[in-house]
Structure formats: C-alpha cells, structure tokens
Design a binder for these strands. Sequence first.
DNA 1: ACAGTGATGTAGATACTCTACACTATGGCT
DNA 2: AGCCATAGTGTAGAGTATCTACATCACTGT
Lengths: 111, 111
Amino acid sequence: MARDNRLELLQGTLDLLILRTLQTAPKHGWDIAEQIEQTSEHVLEVNQGSLYPALHRLEHQGWIKAEWGISELGRRARFYRLTAEGRKQLAEETEGWKRLSAAINRVIRMA
Amino acid sequence: MARDNRLELLQGTLDLLILRTLQTAPKHGWDIAEQIEQTSEHVLEVNQGSLYPALHRLEHQGWIKAEWGISELGRRARFYRLTAEGRKQLAEETEGWKRLSAAINRVIRMA
DNA sequence: ACAGTGATGTAGATACTCTACACTATGGCT
DNA sequence: AGCCATAGTGTAGAGTATCTACATCACTGT
C-alpha cells in the first residue's frame, strides 16, 4: 500500500468505484475520474492509463454500455451507463468490499 | 474484487497483514497465515505462494528479520520478528489503509 | 497562430497474487 | 516396515490490474 507513495488505488477497487459513480446517471470517462477524485477528497487518483482500460474491460463484460455524445463543455465524449448486469455486479462488488475491508479491519484491531 | 470468486486478498494488503500479525510476538510463516485466516474469520486466505514471497520481500526491505527455530509442535521453522523499521512501516501502512479505505467508503456512500 | 485544457486512447513496465508443484520432517496407524 | 496426514518452507509460471509515458484530436481564449 503506497509502498513508495505512488500507488493511489487499492488494486481491484477501480471497477467498483467506476460502477458506483455510474449508479445515478451516465457519465463520460473524464467525468467519472473527476467525480471519484472529488468524492474521495483527492485521496484517490484515477490515471488515464488505468481509467480507459478499465472502462473497456467493464464494457466488454457487459456491465456498462457506451455511446458517443457531447459533454457539458460541448466536446465529443463517450458516455457510459450501467446495464442491468452492471447493477448486479455493483451490488456484488460492494458486498465484497465490505466483507474484505471488515476482515482486514479485524486483523488490524486484533488484541 | 473477487472477480470470479477466487481472489481472497485485496492486492497490496498482505504486507500490512503480516506486519500486523508480528506486532505482538515473533512467529513463523505457517503460524502467520493461520492467524490471519482465523482473525479474519476465514474471509481472508493466505496461499503459500503468496505468503513466502511476501515474507522474503519484507525481510529484504529490512522490516522483518528471520531466524531458524523450533515450532510449538517440535518442527524446524523460520521465525520472523519485526524490526524497528518494520514497526515504522506497519504504522505507515496502517495509516495508508485507513486513508484509502475511508476514501473508498466515501465514494460508495456518496449521494 | 498558439497555448491550455477537455477527452480518449495505447504500449510497455512493474508488481502482487494465484495455481500448482516440490521438498523435508514428524507422528500415528496398521 | 510402510503409509498417510499434517506441519512447514519454498519456487516457477501465469494472470492481471495498475502506473508511467506518450499520442491524438478538438474546442476555447488570447
């Protein structure tokens, strides 16, 4: 973890964060990254080199669906929305995160 | 996370778990794995193929120190103890975990 | 004309974990 | 004596997510 102050994400959690961000409304990649960074109070950083491969991965699994559109600033952007499968996946990943983080916390707080 | 129900650890957290397990007393690898599994109520699983490379990694960084000894069951085992550096590292990793997990929780719970 | 920023994308390196195997030693059982 | 389960350490190779670094295009403001 932050072994040398470079790692800004817990490996394996990016998919969860993206899916969660899309829960309320479709968004484009740039916007997703911004929202994660702001909501996390700038603890989490989403690099482009992680973001776009992740989006393609999620799309490939059928959890999100992409469509070209125009951003709030009038620019061409690829909007992603959660599919029904994606909602299920989000629920599962949220559950998994809770289980795992609680388990780690138990170890950290053990007598 | 648990993309296909096989992943049992959050990538990057094993070092923290090991260091934490050694905080109270020196232990050998097998024992460390047992303790993590039990304390986590069997949510976390520590494979041998992850454990021993991690121990060697931590030793190489100077955070733990190894010594041959005899286990409770009378067998030859390699005991690891935390170094002063290791205690510092444990504190840092614990802090890092709290920061990151809190940040992820903020995203999960956002409006 | 140019710089800044919004926006998407890829290539290659790095690093941790997982699967699967190998090895040694002890104790118990038949 | 032979066999099996268990305790204990270890490595090789594959898989995969992330990071660094770069490239590209378009719009806006100066």
